[in-house]
Computed example of a mutant assay.
Amino acid sequence: MIVGLTGGIGSGKTTVAKMFANFKNVAVYIADVEAKKLMNSSEKIKSALIKTFGDQAYKNNTLNRSFIANIVFKNPEKLTVLNAIVHPEVKKHFQEFVLLNQKASYILYENAILFETKNNLFCDIILVVSAPLKTRIERIILRDNTTEAEIINRMKNQWLEDKKILQSNYIIESLSLEKTQNQVNNIHKILTKKSC
């Protein structure tokens, strides 16, 4: 069983994914982390990014993230091009991960743009992590040392939270760690029973 985990930037998805990763019978795949690894290791992705964004796309053979982010978060067309290069490779990588983890009770697939990339279509169940907009902005400013304007730019490239909630099976409210953990524990019990 594949369980999609999504939510807007700063919602607490990664924290929730780590909580699920503590259960021994769950295999967790974090799309953003794996995409970053692939952008540095896949020659196919590297050459396509250099061809699209120029030699500055990589610095010392490592992805120049700030350079790319600066371009794509201001230009939706360039973001679409970037996604078209990276996402098919991440999808293939995830399919290999699924084959390697067939003994898990379920596989948790964490992806910030699960709906936007239509990856929700191969998920049996979808969880959305939710937090108030103000909280999300505060978290990102602390985490990324960025400005509110840059955050709003990034948010424009994601579906609104309400739209995600409407298409999800479970909502995890990410405000206090203790309450979030309790919700995760309850959902994990339900999912483990469903997978039997």
Rank of each mutant, 00 (worst) to 15 (best):
V33R: 14
A35M: 09
A35T: 11
K36V: 06
L38D: 02
L38E: 01
S41Q: 10
S42G: 08
S42C: 10
K44C: 06
K44A: 10
I45V: 13
K46M: 01
S47T: 09
A48E: 07
L49P: 01
I50D: 05
K51Q: 12
G54Q: 05
G54V: 04
D55E: 13
D55Y: 07
D55V: 02
D55Q: 09
D55A: 02
Q56L: 10
N60Y: 13
N61M: 07
N61R: 06
T62R: 09
T62Y: 08
L63V: 02
L63E: 00
N64Q: 02
N64T: 01
S66D: 12
F67Y: 15
F67A: 00
A69S: 15
N70C: 02
I71N: 03
V72Y: 01
V72E: 01
F73D: 11
K74Q: 14
K74I: 15
N75P: 01
P76K: 12
P76H: 11
P76N: 13
E77K: 10
E77P: 08
K78N: 15
K78H: 08
K78E: 15
K78V: 10
V81P: 08
L82V: 05
N83E: 12
N83W: 00
H87W: 14
E89T: 12
K91W: 10
K91V: 06
K91Q: 08
K91R: 14
H93Q: 12
H93F: 01
F94C: 07
F94G: 06
E96A: 07
E96W: 04
E96H: 09
V98G: 04
V98F: 01
L100S: 09
N101K: 06
Q102R: 14
S105C: 09
Y106G: 00
Y109A: 02
Y109T: 08
E110G: 01
A112D: 01
A112K: 11
I113M: 15
I113L: 15
I113Y: 15
F115D: 02
F115W: 08
E116H: 11
K118D: 12
K118S: 10
N120V: 06
N120D: 15
L121G: 07
F122W: 05
C123T: 09
C123A: 08
D124G: 12
I125T: 14
I125N: 13
I126F: 09
I126G: 03
L127Y: 04
V128L: 03
V129G: 03
